[in-house]
């Protein structure tokens, strides 16, 4: 731990005591009391999957998933739902929940009186968000597989992929949260999320868009999450997937650095 401490001090990383896991433990305990909320989060992506995949899918039939592959619509939309669920879960945890703990419950005021530092808070909260996300994505993947819309063993990698999406969005969400003043500001987060959810080639292929706006869609992080997930679940994996991984990794690492900095600023005045 002292070696980690030395490295942490040398880098421009906020202080921590390597005890982030204890904050994860705290969240796990808190959620034992609010398990209904935890479990209810499982259902939203599944509802979407069945509504779109089964209900609408029958109207649409098979579609061109790119690369000359034709798949039934449910198999096309399932990876997108999984990616979007990872995004939504991570953002909810890192914005709404974090804001409450920061501004109302004053949780971190008491946490920082212990050896834990701002880095532990950032790492701990994001780890928790990822674990929770993993629970959701595992369930989703199992249901999707049972429903027969998963086409390849590559899909096992969809679990770490969902975690990567979660990390990227949680880290950025956390940073954004430190700038929010009131609950009304959450409308602006919604304003960023909803169009991303709807327009990032989630429900229909990128080729639907006019050439002139495709670059805009491709610039969004969810587009990369969805594309990565779709490659894996349809078993259409090529080296190109690494571009998506790189995009989300950079976003996650930068977000994490900023988030811990901002939390330090906010709490250690």
């Amino acid at each position: 731990m002292s070696a980690v401490g030395t490295i942490a001090r040398a880098l421009p990383v906020p202080a921590g005591a390597g005890l982030a896991r204890t904050l994860v433990e705290r969240n796990a305990r808190a959620f034992r009391h609010g398990w209904v909320t935890l479990v209810s989060g499982l259902f939203e992506p599944l509802f979407y999957l069945f509504s779109l995949g089964v209900g609408l899918g029958a109207l649409i039939g098979d579609i061109d998933a790119g690369g000359g592959r034709t798949v039934e619509y449910a198999a096309y939309v399932a990876p997108a739902m999984m990616a979007a669920a990872a995004m939504n879960g991570a953002v909810f945890d890192s914005t709404f929940n974090l804001f409450f703990k920061l501004k109302y419950a004053k949780l971190y005021d008491s946490v920082l009186a212990t050896p834990l530092g701002p880095r532990d808070v950032a790492v701990g909260e994001i780890t928790w968000a990822l674990l929770r996300g993993l629970l959701y994505s595992t369930t989703f993947l199992a249901v999707a597989a049972a429903a027969g819309v998963v086409h390849s063993w590559w899909a096992v990698l969809a679990l770490p992929a969902a975690s990567l999406i979660g990390l990227a969005f949680a880290a950025v969400g956390m940073t954004v949260t430190t700038y929010l003043r009131s609950w009304q500001d959450f409308d602006y987060i919604q304003l960023a999320l909803l169009p991303m959810f709807l327009f990032s080639a989630t429900f229909y292929p990128l080729s639907t868009y006019d050439e002139s706006v495709r670059w805009l869609v491709q610039a969004t992080p969810l587009y990369h999450g969805v594309a990565m997930m779709r490659d894996l679940m349809l078993g259409d994996v090529s080296w190109g997937i690494l571009a998506h991984v790189a995009y989300l990794s950079v976003m996650g690492v930068l977000g994490l650095l900023f988030a811990a900095r901002r939390i330090e600023r906010l709490l250690l005045r």
Binding site: L56, G57, A58, L59, I60, G61, D62, I63, Y73, L198, F199, F203, Y204, T208, Y209
Partner: peptide
């Protein structure tokens, strides 16, 4: 967006 798939879809 999705309408394009529905209207032209092989599902009818």
């Amino acid at each position: 967006g999705l309408g394009a798939l529905v209207d032209d879809g092989v599902g009818g």
